[in-house]
Structures are given as structure tokens and as C-alpha cells.
């Protein structure tokens, strides 16, 4: 079965990509992913804020209390430290050396200067492509949606002007008009869109009365959101598309491709079942395609997109009543 596909201009042997996560952080698991047949890997993000925060924290630790007391003019030895980007670039280089599949670096940040600086560095380290995560939670009620969007578009344009690498943008689902923003992101220079970024949602610890981070792995049902928007954008925008939430089974991956994705990205399932899960997914996908007499992935990509679907309105329906009705027909309402 010909599973090959093209993503961001990269020719891939199959459409399964490991998105950024713990498995793409370590060389040993990267190798296992590659051995299992993954088509490409996205490295964990270089978090701009984290780097800057880390640099400032270290600077603070190295300067706090210094030059104040005559017996101890400082407290830590003056050793040379790697900056965060140095380490990241080394990781990109090591990943490139360790596996033959394309290595996509990713950047996460919110300020223009940081993006420009780090994007060029990543390119020079030999990444195959760059994925941008526009990580920004707009909490200021005086800030308009237009401002937020413009800020993100400016960031994309700034990076585009800095690098020649294929550029993907991982989008947040929280836009009033996602399709419009997607279009403008492509106009700003994105070669591909990754749908969607899953933000950590904070939780509350009632015993300690504290806000705590809470990471929940995705499930197959999380595919629905990207599925709709990939179907909507497929064939409309001139860019690659990746589905990046809820790809757990071969069926999930196939759904994404049918909707119009060029690749299906997985993190949670691989974490849950291990890197070797890739091999199983590929086998199951092949079997399904053989069973259903498909010749290649290219053949089916987008065949159920909004444009190509027999029922395009289905993607536009807010659908509330109908969904509820179908729900109640299957289950007894208590």
C-alpha cells in the first residue's frame, strides 16, 4: 500500500507524525519511533518565555546577595552555562544525527524578538522544518480579538522573514472565525497549519486552595474539533494541514486524512501504548485501505472534506438539536 504523503513540501513515506511530547524529547525514544516507522518527528518546543525566565532566574541566583558581604563576594562558582537555545540547538543536531526521518523543530512564544532570534538559530541547527506554537491566553478584557489576531500574524510574518525553512503554525481553536485566521496565517507565510494546540487547562486543588496544572491526555473524541476545521479548510487554502488532537487509532488517522489532513499527528496514544504503536497503526491503516480497495493515501486525502463531502452543510451546522436527538435515540435519558 502506498502510504506516502507530502507535508510542508517534505516527502514522507506515510502520514503518521509524532507531535512534540516526551517521546520526542529523548534520543532513545526518538530512535524507537523511527524504527517503528514514524514518518517525521516534531521536537518539544523551545519555550521562549521559559528560556527568558530561566536566564533571568539564573542571573538572579548568580547575582543575589553578591558584592555585599566582605567574606563572600559571591556564592556560586563562575562556571560557563549553556543558554536555553544552545541546549535546544544541540538537541536538534543530536536528533538529526540519530534518526533519518525529518526532524521538525518547534518554537513556543509570544514576543516578536524572541521568535526572530530563535527561528534563525533553529534553521542553522539543521531542522527539516519549523512549527510555531502561538501560545497566548488573552486575559486582558480591553484587548480586542483583532489585536490578538494581528499580534499573532505579525509573529508569523516575522519568523517567515527570518527563515527559509518550511513553516507550520500550530493554531489555537479559539478564534471567532478560525477559517479567516487560517487564511491570513497562510498569507503571512505559513506553509502548513497544525490543528489544534491543546492548552493545559488549570485545575483547582481544594485541599490546598491552589491553582494547579492538570495535564489530561487526549482521547479519540478530541479528534472531532480538528476534523471539522480540516474538512472546512481542505482544498480552500493552499497549505499543508495536520490533525493534531485525538489521533489514537488507525481509524482516527484515516478520518483525519479523509477530512483533508496531509498528516496525522499523535502524542497521547504513543505515550499510552509506546513508540511501537506506530507500527500497529500503520499496519491497520494499510489493512483498512486494502480492504476498502484504496491504492494510496494521496487518493483519499480530502475525499470527505467539506468541498468533497456529499453533505457539506453537515460541517456548518451548529447542529445542537440534531446531535442531542441522535444522542437520545441511542441512550435512554434518565
Amino acid at each position: 500500500m502506498d502510504l506516502s504523503t507530502t507535508y510542508l513540501g517534505l516527502d514522507l513515506p506515510n502520514p503518521l507524525v509524532a507531535s512534540s511530547g516526551p517521546l520526542t524529547e529523548r534520543i532513545d525514544t526518538l530512535k524507537r519511533l523511527a524504527d517503528a516507522g514514524i514518518a517525521a518527528v516534531v521536537l518539544p518546543s523551545l519555550f521562549q518565555e521559559e528560556v527568558e525566565h530561566g536566564d533571568l532566574e539564573f542571573h538572579w541566583a548568580r547575582t543575589h546577595g553578591t558584592e555585599a558581604f566582605p567574606e563572600a563576594l559571591d556564592y556560586l562558582p563562575d562556571v560557563e552555562l549553556d543558554s536555553g537555545p544552545d541546549r535546544y540547538l544541540r538537541r536538534v543536531e543530536e536528533a538529526r544525527a540519530a534518526v533519518d526521518v525529518p526532524v521538525v523543530a518547534s518554537l513556543n512564544g509570544s514576543s516578536k524578538s524572541g521568535w526572530e532570534r530563535y527561528a534563525s538559530l533553529v534553521e542553522s541547527a539543521g531542522a527539516s522544518a519549523l512549527e510555531l506554537n502561538v501560545y497566548f491566553v488573552p486575559t486582558d478584557p480591553t484587548q480586542t480579538a483583532a489585536d490578538v489576531e494581528q499580534r499573532q500574524l505579525d509573529l508569523i510574518a516575522a519568523v517567515r522573514s527570518q527563515v527559509r525553512l518550511p513553516l507550520a503554525v500550530k493554531l489555537s481553536p479559539f478564534f471567532s472565525s478560525p477559517a479567516n485566521f487560517a487564511r491570513r496565517a497562510v498569507e503571512a507565510g505559513a506553509d502548513g497549519l497544525v490543528l489544534f494546540n491543546r492548552f493545559y487547562q488549570p485545575d483547582l486543588d481544594l485541599e490546598n486552595m491552589q491553582v494547579v496544572p492538570n495535564l489530561v491526555l487526549s482521547g479519540s473524541s478530541d479528534l472531532r474539533l480538528p476534523l471539522r476545521w480540516i474538512a472546512v479548510l481542505s482544498g480552500v487554502l493552499d497549505c499543508s494541514l495536520a490533525a493534531a488532537s485525538g489521533v489514537h487509532t488507525a481509524a482516527d488517522a484515516l478520518k483525519a486524512l479523509f477530512a483533508g489532513a496531509d498528516v496525522a499527528m499523535s502524542t497521547s496514544a504513543l505515550l499510552k501504548f509506546g513508540p511501537e504503536h506506530v507500527g500497529r497503526l500503520l499496519e491497520e491503516m494499510s489493512s483498512w485501505l486494502v480492504e476498502h480497495e484504496y491504492e494510496s493515501v494521496e487518493q483519499l486525502k480530502g475525499s470527505l472534506s467539506q468541498r468533497n463531502s456529499p453533505d457539506p452543510e453537515a460541517f456548518e451546522r451548529a447542529n445542537y438539536q440534531q446531535t442531542l436527538r441522535s444522542y437520545s435515540t441511542s441512550y435512554e435519558v434518565p
Partner: peptide
Amino acid sequence: TYGKRGPTVLER
């Protein structure tokens, strides 16, 4: 003095 402490420290 601060060259190895990252561009943010220098810029500030």
C-alpha cells in the same frame, strides 16, 4: 560579565 547568561539579561 553577563555574556553567558543569555540575550535577555544583556538586552535588559
